[in-house]
Simulated assay, not measured.
Amino acid sequence: MTTTRRLQPPDGYHFTRTLRSLLVVRHDPCGRVGDRDFWLAARTPEGPGSLHLACAGGELVATGHGPGAAWLVDRADAIAGLRDDLGDFPALAAAHPLVARLARTFSGIRLPATGQIFHRLLRAVLEQKVTGIEAHRAYRAIVRHFGEPAPGPAGLLLPPDPAAVAATPYWVFHPFGVEQRRTQALLRAAVVAARLEQCADSAEATRRLTAIAGIGPWTAAEVVRTAYGDADAVSVGDFHIPNTVAWALAGEARGTDARMLELLEPYAGHRGRVCDLLAAGGISAPKFGPRMPIRSFARF
């Protein structure tokens, strides 16, 4: 089963930079992105499917495969970030020279909204308190362990079925490099995944997510920014972002979560967007001390 739809992106739309955030770096078994095409496998309310977005003559051609094809194509514009409304952000950005410059430079980047919570939650839980290399290595191993082929010709794997994850003993995840604390948070989330997927908006999803033991504001923000395209979601509790915001907006080498939120307050409604722009621009605070080591819990 295939379904096709044509989409009209805005002037200056940046295809790759917008969609790259939906996948882990280097290799994601559930998707891939290039200069002119993008693939994503998903478990939709209508069944498994995969979405292909292709740049063609100034348009985006969205093609869905499998039982979930119609669901994916129907929200292909949201997945591509085309429902992202900048609203009053250009006026807010103009108040700070750096933010204004980054907003102009990266005006073609939009926030995707996949409508898929558990897939992004899997990544976010694995990214808690470890390096990106560790987290992404574990993510790829878990996807392959639960791997089911996705519909379509791209050779992708579907994200793990929450029911299968919930039924798996925590020690199975140890060889993937995931210790008991993160595994238990993931298993708790998998048990209630069906209810999480039914959340009406970002606020409801945040409430339900943070009610799960082991899932705090940082993890919830990472999820809703992608699942709902929430431009205001700030990853409170991040190791780097408070320092980055304090340095970029106030010239302060170190910042707390409270200071970060204070500096971002003028951008209410777009606070997460500002953080994303700083990341896109390669802005970072001065570094002091040793870097976090890359470990493997599988060897413990």
Rank of each mutant, 00 (worst) to 15 (best):
T18D: 04
R259F: 14
H145T: 11
A70M: 07
G229S: 14
P112H: 03
G155D: 07
A78L: 07
M1A: 13
Y170C: 06
T256Q: 09
D257V: 06
G108W: 09
D257L: 01
L98M: 08
T244N: 13
G155F: 01
T219D: 03
G115Q: 10
L249C: 02
P97A: 14
P159M: 13
P90Q: 08
T18A: 04
D35P: 05
F239W: 14
R291F: 12
A154E: 15
L92S: 12
D201A: 12
A94P: 06
L157A: 10
A231W: 07
C55E: 15
I294Q: 14
D161T: 10
Y267W: 12
A298T: 06
H14G: 04
C275N: 08
P149R: 11
L126H: 00
A298L: 03
L40H: 05
F297G: 07
L157S: 09
T256C: 08
Q128D: 04
G152T: 12
T183M: 02
G108V: 08
L53Q: 04
L7H: 01
A298K: 04
H270G: 06
V33D: 06
H119E: 15
A80P: 10
S296K: 10
I79N: 01
R137M: 02
L158C: 06
A211S: 10
L121I: 06
A95P: 05
D11A: 15
P169W: 11
A268K: 14
E204H: 11
H52Y: 12
L51G: 01
F288C: 13
R101E: 12
A41L: 08
A93T: 11
G115S: 05
G177K: 01
I215G: 09
L111M: 15
I283K: 00
V99Q: 12
Y139E: 03
D232V: 13
I117R: 06
L158K: 03
G132P: 05
R181M: 11
R83Q: 08
L60H: 05
A91D: 15
G34N: 03
R140C: 10
R271Y: 06
G115N: 05
P169E: 05
P48C: 03
P217L: 14
W39D: 11
Q180G: 05
S235A: 15
G177A: 03
G214T: 09
A113L: 04
P242R: 00
T226V: 15
R181H: 11
L60I: 07
L82R: 07
L60Q: 09
L23H: 02
I142H: 04
A91T: 13
T2Y: 00
A56Y: 12
L278H: 04
L7N: 02
G49L: 04
A280R: 03
A138S: 13
P90E: 02
L156W: 01
Y139Q: 10
F176S: 08
V191N: 07
G177Y: 06
Q198F: 05
L7V: 00
S235M: 14
R101C: 06
L158N: 06
M292Y: 14
P159I: 10
